[in-house]
Computed example of a mutant assay.
Amino acid sequence: MPVSVVTLFSIVLTLGIYMLARVLAVRFPSPLTTPVFLSTAAIIFVLVGSGISYEEYTPAKEMMTYLLGPATVALAVPLYRNRYVLWQKAVPAFLGMIAGTLATIASAVWLTKAFHLTTTTAASAAVKSVTTPVAIEVARIIGGDPALSAIFVMVAGMFGAMFGPWLLTAMKVTDPFSRGLSMGTTAHGIGTAQIVNEGSLQGAVSGAAMGFAAILTSVILPWFFPLLK
């Protein structure tokens, strides 16, 4: 099936804006110039201004989303190159991921309780720090709304990518391993895409943490969430 003009325009627009956002992020480093955030905002603005609906943009989105598979597999390259470092720090890293996973779950649930939100919202927010497919399935188990969970995941990843590296620097966390571990545990794939710009080790650790955090959340959340309620 031939690609429509709108689809081709959408693909070129998305790639072009993202590449421009990466250049701006280097020249003007700021949470607001984080490529994922800046490009998302710019693309929405252009699509709304040009009258292209989400339905018309969907074919382009699906083509680009297909590339997430190879991109995720490509994370194995820095993992392999840094395998000895990962193995040497496996025990403290595992303990850190457990602490980080429990903290992200508890903070999400307590915040929803502080704002007197529903139990369904709390369950949906509890999975915010893992990748979307895992979050949706775990949310169903504990009584959350899958669609709402997907939104929380996106917001958590976006804010993690925007403010995570800056907060780590402000807290004087300079160790590459620790920075990667923090981002992968709390901001999943979007955070990993951001922290990999700092170095191969950060990206490798973040990618590994993202995967293990998803497993830990799947195991921990079904019994931990009722305790928080």
Results as ranks from 00 to 15, higher is better:
60 A>D: 14
54 Y>M: 10
92 P>L: 09
86 L>A: 01
74 A>F: 11
87 W>E: 04
50 S>K: 03
55 E>G: 14
50 S>T: 08
56 E>H: 11
90 A>S: 09
62 E>M: 02
90 A>H: 07
64 M>Y: 03
57 Y>E: 03
57 Y>Q: 07
90 A>L: 14
88 Q>V: 11
70 P>K: 03
71 A>F: 10
52 I>N: 03
54 Y>A: 14
81 R>F: 08
62 E>K: 08
57 Y>C: 09
95 L>K: 07
71 A>Y: 13
49 G>I: 10
47 L>H: 06
75 L>M: 11
95 L>Q: 12
50 S>A: 06
72 T>G: 04
75 L>T: 02
73 V>Q: 05
91 V>R: 11
74 A>P: 15
70 P>M: 08
72 T>N: 01
72 T>W: 00
64 M>L: 11
48 V>D: 02
58 T>L: 15
48 V>G: 05
62 E>V: 02
78 P>K: 01
93 A>Q: 01
67 L>N: 04
98 I>G: 00
87 W>Q: 11
55 E>K: 14
62 E>R: 07
80 Y>T: 15
51 G>Y: 07
91 V>A: 14
70 P>T: 08
95 L>V: 15
91 V>M: 15
93 A>T: 01
67 L>R: 05
81 R>G: 12
55 E>H: 14
75 L>G: 06
61 K>W: 03
80 Y>V: 15
48 V>F: 04
97 M>G: 00
77 V>P: 05
48 V>A: 13
53 S>E: 12
48 V>Y: 01
77 V>F: 09
70 P>E: 14
92 P>T: 14
60 A>Q: 14
64 M>G: 10
56 E>I: 09
82 N>H: 02
73 V>T: 13
72 T>Y: 01
97 M>C: 01
80 Y>N: 10
57 Y>W: 02
48 V>S: 04
97 M>N: 01
75 L>W: 01
82 N>Y: 01
83 R>T: 04
66 Y>M: 10
84 Y>C: 10
55 E>V: 12
93 A>P: 00
73 V>A: 12
54 Y>I: 10
80 Y>G: 10
94 F>G: 05
47 L>T: 04
67 L>E: 03
49 G>W: 01
75 L>D: 03
98 I>T: 09
91 V>Q: 13
62 E>S: 05
94 F>Q: 03
73 V>I: 15
47 L>N: 04
89 K>V: 11
76 A>Y: 02
66 Y>V: 15
87 W>R: 15
66 Y>S: 14
84 Y>A: 15
83 R>F: 06
46 V>E: 09
83 R>Q: 02
68 L>H: 06
98 I>Y: 02
94 F>T: 11
53 S>A: 12
84 Y>P: 01
85 V>F: 00
87 W>G: 06
68 L>P: 07
59 P>A: 13
50 S>F: 06
52 I>M: 06
81 R>H: 13
80 Y>L: 12
67 L>A: 11
75 L>S: 06
86 L>N: 01
89 K>R: 03
78 P>E: 00
72 T>D: 04
92 P>N: 07
56 E>S: 14
98 I>Q: 03
98 I>C: 01
71 A>M: 10
86 L>E: 00
78 P>H: 05
51 G>M: 09
64 M>N: 08
69 G>N: 02
52 I>E: 03
77 V>C: 07
58 T>I: 13
96 G>N: 05
61 K>L: 09
